[in-house]
Design a protein around this nucleic acid. Structure first.
Length: 294
DNA sequence: AAGGCTGACAACCGCTATAGT
DNA sequence: TACTATAGCGGTTGTCAGCCT
């Protein structure tokens, strides 16, 4: 059984063609192990070995596959790039929203966050956070861990993302893109902080990613988000006053994210000076900043 | 056109947790 | 119980394409 390479990458780095002088670009460790970018031949060797023998025992796998790589390197290459179900390409708006939400809950628990974004790797999410989100925090001249920044994310960026998701949904006329009924396939055994009800994601928000039910590990990574929340009581009361359109649109069940969208405990902070947040952001960026950001 | 800068991403490193002996 | 090997995680670095001057 031969395994097809993951060829749908949009990243120019992803397919390393080092034919011709490649040895010059690959560093050799003192013990003869290779490091640096993977060659196509190495990728094929790893893919084919795993196809025949499966994952696990990465050090011995590296040796048996004839790869002059550490087990760690093989594992990382497989998990972050070669796995057939790795989803590549731009982070969608829905995924951005989910990342923001989950990060607000769990912080830099990238692998945990990645578990709820099928096909995305912790490395990818981490890179996204560092290159996009932290960049914006830097632009705003505030610490990414500051309350100020977190409030901005919660009460301004995330609602704006929802609006854009809905706008995109309206343009495409994809009324079916909203998950109003779901099959509770969430593997709660593997989700110690259940996100059921956290987000009602459009059905197609994960694109063409095919999560195979038979993939034992991946099964646990496949979260189907129910629109039914047990945390709807305090849903964005502040936003309602600041942005009636947003509130209204988000209460149209079946036309986007319903009231269950974002309502973890702590979202509504009665002490938050929301107007101050808005005002300061407008000062920072001179108007509609979130479009610039996202 | 050339050099510098920046963003994005792949890969590595160090550390910790866990399993096996 | 102690030790070792392995897996996994998060932080950091290296590389390269594209943009800017």
């Amino acid at each position: 059984m031969e395994v097809m390479m993951n060829t749908n990458s949009s990243n120019s780095h992803s397919c390393i063609d080092m034919s011709g002088g490649e040895e010059d670009q690959i560093n050799m460790m003192m013990d003869g192990l290779r490091r640096g970018p993977w060659t196509v031949e190495e990728d094929f060797a790893l893919i084919n070995y795993i196809a025949h023998h499966g994952e696990g025992r990465w050090n011995s796998l590296a040796r048996c596959a004839g790869l002059m790589r550490t087990g760690k390197s093989c594992r990382l290459r497989w998990l972050n790039y070669l796995r057939p179900d790795v989803r590549r390409g731009n982070i969608t708006l829905e995924e951005q929203l989910l990342i923001l939400e989950l990060h607000s809950r769990w912080g830099n628990r990238w692998s945990k966050i990645a578990q709820h974004l099928p096909g995305r790797t912790d490395n990818e999410i981490k890179n996204y956070w560092r290159t996009r989100v932290q960049k914006h925090a830097k632009q705003l001249k505030c610490d990414v861990n500051s309350k100020q920044f977190k409030d901005t994310v919660r009460y301004l960026w995330m609602p704006r993302l929802v609006e854009r998701i809905q706008a995109a949904s309206a343009i495409t006329g994809d009324s079916s893109s909203v998950t109003t009924t779901t099959t509770p396939t969430l593997n709660k055994n593997n989700m110690d902080n259940d996100v059921t009800g956290l987000l009602a994601l459009p059905k197609n928000c994960f694109g063409n990613n095919q999560i195979k039910p038979a993939d034992t590990e991946e099964k646990s990574r496949t979260a189907v988000f129910s629109p039914v929340s047990d945390l709807t009581d305090c849903y964005f009361p502040i936003i309602q006053s600041q942005n009636p359109d947003f509130f209204q649109s988000n209460n149209q069940i079946g036309n986007g994210f319903d009231g269950s969208l974002i309502s973890p405990a702590g979202y509504f902070n009665p002490n938050l000076d929301f107007e101050a947040v808005v005002e300061q952001n407008n000062q920072w960026l001179g108007g509609d900043f979130s479009d610039n950001l996202w």
